[in-house]
């Protein structure tokens, strides 16, 4: 895609209407209060003996486990494994999904040929593949990457396929009349159009990659946060299980924020909800 020259970029792209400034937004503060209240409830119920700490853990002890993992640095190693599996699965699945989506989107005959196979593959519960991948790729990171890739692939594939098919025929005819070659069509029309669809599925895809990594570790591994949880369960250490879950949740949130950030940078051309509303009025 061409880029506007710097002088043009200096022009503010749009005027976003500012809502009349009212009182401070209390929602973030209320969220924190809600979180603290839930933790206190958990802690209180365990302390009062309503919940058995053997099964439900203790938030204070969970925090201690998390703290020890972080200070001793053990978590870094395991988290490093889980995150690299996640990112590799995400990258691989996305690239393969975009490729397959573009090819089948542009070749209706091939799409018809592959249709039942793709549906069947997508309908298979991918978790059952984990042992097979462990056999093929061993207990290292690659069996987890393979599992995550199969999950990510279909999410991205279906979105790109849809994106290619739903390109406006007027935009296509117009760009052809302007003299586009087949390669230009791919670069200037199909690819950007597909990209926007990919991004709408990216939150889903990164979540899938993460699930693939953790489940893969859980089913057989020697490193990773999933492995930590498995070990803790083996020794009936519920606090460590919860600690693992807390760390996974925080990671998932951070990954999701990262995707949102990339999305905002790359999809500036799409109307936001507020702008779409304005146009409708």
């Amino acid at each position: 895609m061409l880029k506007a020259s710097d002088e043009i970029l200096a022009v503010p792209p749009t005027v976003i209407p500012v809502e009349p400034s009212r009182a401070i937004d209390w929602i973030p503060a209320q969220r924190v209060v809600l979180l603290v209240a839930l933790l206190l409830l958990w802690w209180g119920l365990v302390r009062l003996g309503v919940l058995d700490p053997f099964f439900f853990g203790d938030p204070v002890r969970v925090a201690v486990v998390v703290w020890n993992w972080c200070t001793s640095g053990t978590i870094l190693v395991h988290l490093g494994y889980t995150l690299s599996e996640t990112l590799l699965a995400f990258a691989l699945g996305t690239v393969l999904g975009i490729g397959a989506g573009l090819v089948l989107g542009l070749k209706p005959k091939a799409a018809r040929l592959f249709d039942p196979f793709i549906k069947a593959a997508n309908a298979t519960p991918r978790v059952v593949l984990a042992p097979i991948f462990a056999l093929w790729f061993g207990l290292g990171i690659w069996s987890k990457v393979a599992l995550g890739t199969t999950l990510v692939f279909f999410v991205v594939f279906f979105n790109v396929f849809q994106g290619v098919r739903e390109v406006s025929p007027i935009v296509l005819d117009n760009i052809r009349m302007l003299g586009a070659s087949r390669r230009d069509l791919l670069r200037y029309v199909y690819f950007p159009s597909a990209t926007s669809w990919v991004f709408s599925s990216l939150h889903n895809a990164i979540g899938m990659a993460f699930v693939g990594a953790v489940i893969g570790e859980y089913l057989g591994s020697v490193k990773g946060v999933g492995f930590l949880i498995l070990q803790a369960e083996g020794s009936f250490n519920v606090d460590a299980v919860f600690a693992g879950i807390v760390i996974l949740t925080i990671c998932a949130l951070v990954l999701d924020l990262g995707v949102s950030w990339i999305e905002r940078r790359l999809l500036v051309w799409r109307p936001t909800h507020g702008q779409a509303d304005r146009e409708a009025t």
């Binding site: 895609m1 061409l2 043009i8 117009n174 586009a180 799409r270």
Partner: peptide, 28 residues
């Protein structure tokens, strides 16, 4: 190849800025 076409509907690439939409044909 001697003709330009102005369509009735929306023909601009929604992902291109105004200047890029104009420049793209020249690039071709």
């Amino acid at each position: 190849r001697d003709a330009a076409y102005l369509f009735q509907g929306e023909s601009l690439m929604p992902w291109g800025r105004a200047i890029d939409n104009i420049a793209v044909g020249l690039r071709f």
